[in-house]
Amino acid sequence: MPRIIVCLKQALDVSQLKADPSSRKLVTAGVPRKISDFDKNALEEAVSLKEKLGGEVVTITSSAEDAKTSIREALAIGADKGYFVNDEGLRNSCTLATSHVLAEAIKKIGQFDLVLCGEASIDGFSAQIGPRVAEILGIPVLTYARSITVQGDTVTAERSLEDRYETVRTKMPAVITVTREINEPRIPSLMAIMKASKKEIVSWRLADISVPPEKAGEQGSGVKIMDVSAPKVERKKETIQGESPREIAANLVKALIQDGVIGR
């Protein structure tokens, strides 16, 4: 009966981001946050493994912001318990610091068979946390899984790479990062949402998981963000005129030849 830990990131809802029109700097203050999309797939996979094999599913989230609403949502989807490292000292953490914090929290949570992550988070999209956590814990990692099968103490995953699918196998405990193809996350029922309010969220400060301040936040980071700006779009946005599809096509082809992108 496996015990599964799901790394659940509360990410910025990137579809709601806006850039300041004059400075082009991105405004992140006040932007709503939600469970990072692929993490919902990781959670769904964990919950369906539990439904098949028994065991337990817990989530771990690390954030300087409040993330309880997202953790409650995960509990409604089917996690049994949520762990939350919430500390001001986490601000400006890069993946080096975040993975250290998550790995220490996982050690404190105790025995487990699988750690599931998203292939990447929708805001950072670094795809680093899963592999890094595995290295710190000294266990194998299977990345970009589109299917997971557990048999005894062995886990098999089909990895979705650019030009191939790769079936890989390892002994548990292991870390697996999942792609969106792996499943369709369920939407919790009202009953499940109500039941979730009785489930426990364990909150920790950095000191509770024995992470010294110099291992978290900017001090514990290897990378520092200097600037976040909207990319320049310098497109012509020229409407191709024409009375008929034929005329439009002729005008378009003329323009493309003039630009030198298609043959004379």
Partner: peptide
């Protein structure tokens, strides 16, 4: 690099 689903370009530097 491009982040936030293509909404932003991040410039980053190293501390280690």
């Amino acid at each position: 690099r491009v982040v936030y689903s293509g909404n932003a370009v991040v410039t980053a530097t190293y501390l280690k």
